[in-house]
Amino acid sequence: MAGSKRLITIVWFVAALTGLAATLFISVSYGAKDVTLETVWAAVFHYDEQWTTHQVVHDIRLPRVLGAAVTGMAFAIAGAIMQGITRNPMADTGILGVNAGAAFVVALSFAFIPSVSYSTLIVLAFFGAGLTTIFIMLLGSVHSPLRLTIAGAVVAAILQSLSTGIAIYFQLSQDLAFWYAGGVGGIGWEHLRLLAPIVFIVAVWAVMLGRPITFLSLGDDSAVSLGVSLNAVRLQGMTAAVLLAGSAVAVAGSIGFVGLVAPHIARWLVGIDYRKRILMSALLGATLLVWADFASRMVNPPREFAIGAMVALVGVPFFLYIARKERREL
């Protein structure tokens, strides 16, 4: 029995990896100008700046698609961690207001430090996400999923209103529209060089936290009896989630629901073990956001839809389904 479950889990991981690889290829290959597999391969491994198609693939599409994948991983892993340590199935950095905190600090930065560098922006986004997380935890309760969700929604609404006010007063509406709607069109190699190491290092840390988070998700008493330090695991888990959410918002804006959808599907596929669930969430989150970006480009080319709106088409019904399911179980 254990052997068959392990085999099924391996099959799901292979399928997720294959699906992500196919998604990346499709997204890089198709757009305003379609390119062949041979051209994509040559642009990646034998780049020639004299060829226009190589420039399109290497300098525009590839960093954009990889940026969407890495950002999706960040949001998905952060959502999985938050669901585990709060035992809140509706936890997500967007729903709980963490993204709004990071975006609010980004708005302040644009207003008072117009020439802020991307690396500084990431640090400031971390700061905003961290403070918001602490405030929401104090306002709500990690032991009450409903109170935590309501507190997050209220704080998110307030911060979004303040961000809008700052944008209007300082005439930043055009600059901040991207951060409100979310998007990966502006991601370049210089952004990925900062974003990717942060996400991958924190992802490894999150997987290492997977075992105690699994125990914690079963209840405080069970976790303590298994030798888990509740406060230490919660602190480390929240720190990891803030780092992931802050870096993702700094590069792609406030995109919600990825951290809600991906962890739930991951649980259905690989079970409650957070070591497996976090890894599967990363793959699914990357795939979801790459597809959302691809759809945003292909719905009405050459114009683009907001990637956040494309994710919401999946995320909102999913959120309502989870909320209704939780209400039945109360």
Rank of each mutant, 00 (worst) to 15 (best):
L194W: 03
L62P: 02
Q55H: 07
L24Y: 09
I113M: 14
H264K: 12
Q236E: 09
V70F: 04
S115M: 10
W291P: 03
H264Y: 10
A223C: 11
A232S: 13
L330I: 11
M137V: 13
V314P: 03
A266P: 08
A76G: 01
D175R: 14
T18D: 01
L330M: 14
T133W: 04
D48N: 15
A125E: 03
A91I: 09
L172P: 08
Q171H: 14
I255K: 03
Q55G: 13
L62C: 05
L162S: 08
I77Q: 02
G227Y: 09
S254R: 12
T214K: 00
Y169K: 14
D92I: 05
A196S: 13
V44Y: 08
G237E: 07
D273K: 13
L139P: 07
T133R: 01
I213D: 01
M298D: 01
G227S: 05
P263G: 04
W189Q: 07
V35F: 03
R211T: 11
G256K: 01
A223P: 12
F25D: 03
V251K: 02
A181V: 15
G285W: 05
Q50T: 15
T120P: 00
S141K: 08
F294K: 02
V311K: 04
V270P: 04
G84F: 02
M137R: 11
I187A: 02
L218C: 11
I150H: 13
W51C: 10
M1H: 05
A42K: 15
L289G: 00
I168V: 14
P263W: 02
M238Q: 06
G186Y: 08
M298N: 08
A282S: 12
I10L: 11
R64L: 02
G182Q: 04
I10T: 11
L330C: 05
L7I: 12
F127I: 15
A22P: 04
R303I: 08
L7H: 13
G259R: 07
I322H: 10
I201Y: 10
G31A: 05
S141G: 09
H191Y: 10
F127H: 07
A177S: 15
